[in-house]
């Protein structure tokens, strides 16, 4: 397969350098995960042994069971909370940003540029800026320790990004498609639902998953707007577990793995679409 044009440099780059680089890259990315995964199967004695024990002697799920059923730090409850908050945030964000993204992609109205600029600028705001005012706002509305407070707060970082991404997707769909549908008597909303959405489905799915993953990771709102253990999300629960007593690395490792699995699965699906979306949004930037 070697083309005559290939020089020595290319063969070295394509061979040894490529494989060494890939090895180093995979090791750097994976080693910390593997280390925690191993720790989650270790017994207490193995975790704190000197010199340290690399491999657990048996595949024990005790840490997972303890973390999942613990009464002080119930990961089953945290998991359910995270799932609910992230799912509702995802659905609401998607609906809101489909409408907004469509309007900004299709209609030319006064203030359109300003809107686009606001969505871009909002992505640059520090989350810490919102914490004190949102806390007093949710407190005044009696929303402390509710899912609503977390879901609404999550909009502040999911919506600007998803709108920005969807504007790009919608603009890439030829306008003639829905114009002909509307000539056939379709309403604007009907054309959006029947023509545009099916075509933009991959993009919409990607933005939806983005909203889910971002909410799943959210920490600061979750620890500020909840005080009861039953209302904590996984991120907040993990942090709570650290502050609770001497760090239980076994249970904590299990908790870390539990929190990672759903987003890892979603990400494998999302990867390709997200790459396209990011570069589309970025190039327009």
């Amino acid at each position: 397969m070697r083309t005559p044009g290939r020089g020595l440099a290319e063969r070295v780059l394509g061979g040894p350098v490529l494989w060494t680089g890939l090895g180093a890259l995979t090791l750097f990315a994976m080693a910390p995960f593997v280390w925690v995964l191993l720790a989650s199967f270790k017994t207490r004695a193995e975790l704190y042994a000197t010199p340290i024990v690399y491999l657990p002697t048996a595949l024990s799920f005790a840490n997972y069971v303890e973390a999942w059923t613990s009464r002080l730090t119930p990961f089953s409850r945290f998991f359910a909370n995270s799932l609910w908050v992230s799912s509702v945030t995802m659905v609401a964000t998607t609906v809101v940003s489909i409408l907004a993204g469509y309007a900004l992609a299709r209609f030319r109205f006064a203030g359109r540029q300003t809107f686009l600029l606001v969505f871009l600028a909002t992505q640059m705001f520090p989350a810490v800026l919102l914490i004190a005012p949102l806390l007093s706002q949710w407190y005044a509305l009696g929303l402390i320790d509710t899912y609503q407070a977390l879901i609404y707060s999550n909009f502040s970082f999911t919506v600007p990004f998803t709108v920005w991404m969807l504007v790009g997707y919608f603009e890439s769909i030829p306008r003639e498609l829905e114009e002909s549908a509307m000539l056939d008597g379709c309403t604007n909303f009907g054309a959006l639902c029947r023509i545009i959405l099916p075509l933009a489905a991959p993009g919409v799915a990607a933005t939806a998953i983005f909203a889910f993953v971002a909410s799943w990771s959210e920490l600061l709102f979750a620890i500020t707007f909840t005080s009861q253990t039953e209302m904590r999300t996984l991120s907040a629960g993990l942090l709570f577990m650290v502050g609770q007593y001497e760090i239980q690395w076994g249970q904590l490792s299990a908790g870390v793995i539990i929190s990672t699995i759903p987003v890892a699965i979603l990400f494998t699906y999302l990867q390709r679409h997200l790459i396209q979306g990011l570069s589309a949004g970025a190039v327009k930037g």
């Binding site: 995979t26 996984l234 991120s235 890892a264």
Partner: peptide, 15 residues
Amino acid sequence: VRTITLLPWIIPGVV
């Protein structure tokens, strides 16, 4: 390899 190397980016910050 792509999926593996991109994973650290999407897991929660606290993790």
